[in-house]
């Protein structure tokens, strides 16, 4: 960075009103969880394990500790589930998560994440709790619930569970959307593209919207419910067209965990990404017994951004990656 750039780049990008608002949002969040008898916990940012996601790239580092390679967590999911398997009941954490390559108006590679788990909660209960929290922090109406499939049908006219790539491509073209050349035949890639372009912009313009019952292929670590077409018990909250939270009625079966990890690694390899170690500590914890529970992760920076009625994260994060 040259001297002219440094003369301005040393400064934080948000105003003090937003820096103060963040402190207030954090204070209210902690108060809400304490009122609901959740225990605040801390888990390590550095771990030899990482969640194996097809589309999330962790940052890895070598430390001078037994020559081991560590990952910066992409979410506190693994360690919080280990705490649950070891006797935790209702846990929350406000921490940092890191995702390589994710940089844009609504992404910073290092971000603040709020994550919580409560034993015994069904997906329904998990969505109710998320809605209550959001309502209390943001003074909104109760969140509207909408099946993932119904939202797709409404805004694209396509059934995300039965349509094929060619049909998605046709609708994209008819709507003047230039799809990336490499989307090919991957249904999930098409679903993500149309979700971004045609569905998300309509979600939560007044009351927040929670989409639920995701395609089983996008279950990640959510339980899959057996139905005529199986669905993932996964849900996401959107407000002002922006994705804020992702929740699962959690997968508890260690064999299924191993199968999904292998599947995510296969997709990573196929896309030219490095495969990630399957760690094994979460697997061992689940073998010992992860009780049925629901967990949710929420992006705190985006929450503060929306509370401040701002459009970009650099308006609420003191030093985004370009000034860090």
């Amino acid at each position: 960075m040259n001297q002219t750039d440094l003369a301005t780049a040393w400064r934080p990008s948000p105003d003090w009103s937003e820096i103060r608002l963040r402190a207030e949002v954090l204070r209210q969040t902690r108060a809400f969880f304490q009122e609901h008898d959740f225990l605040e916990v801390e888990t390590p940012l550095l771990s030899t394990d990482t969640v194996v996601d097809a589309e999330i790239e962790p940052i890895s580092l070598s430390c001078g500790i037994e020559g081991k390679k560590f990952f910066l967590q992409t979410s506190p999911e693994l360690c919080m589930k280990r705490l649950l398997a070891a006797g935790g009941e209702a846990l929350f954490q406000i921490t940092r998560a890191f995702r390589d390559e994710e940089c844009g108006p609504l992404h910073n590679p290092e971000f603040t994440i709020l994550e919580w788990y409560r034993l015994g909660d069904s997906m329904q209960k998990g969505m109710d709790f998320l809605s209550d929290l959001f309502q209390s922090l943001m003074n909104t109406d109760r969140a509207i619930r909408c099946r993932y499939r119904d939202a797709f049908l409404k805004f694209t006219g396509l059934d995300p569970f039965t349509c094929e790539a060619a049909q998605f491509a046709q609708v994209a073209t008819a709507n003047g959307l230039a799809a990336p050349a490499q989307l090919g035949d991957d249904i999930d890639d098409w679903l993500d593209f149309l979700l971004i372009e045609m569905v998300m912009p309509h979600l939560g313009l007044e009351a927040p919207v929670i989409l639920y019952d995701y395609p089983a292929s996008q279950a990640a670590l959510a339980n899959v419910r057996a139905e005529a077409i199986p669905v993932a018990e996964r849900f996401e909250l959107f407000y002002q067209g922006i994705e804020l939270a992702n929740g699962y009625h959690e997968l508890c079966d260690p064999h299924e965990l191993a199968r999904r990890t292998a599947q995510a690694n296969a997709k990573r390899t196929q896309q030219g990404r490095r495969p990630l170690p399957d760690g094994g500590k979460l697997h061992a914890a689940m073998k010992a017994g992860l009780p049925p529970c629901t967990g949710v992760a929420l992006g705190v920076d985006r929450l503060v951004m929306l509370a401040a009625k701002k459009k970009q994260l650099d308006e609420v994060i003191a030093f985004t990656i370009d000034r860090a």
Partner: peptide, 12 residues
Amino acid sequence: SNFRKPGKGNAI
């Protein structure tokens, strides 16, 4: 240059 991505999904 813009970056959009559903949390668990594919980046555009």
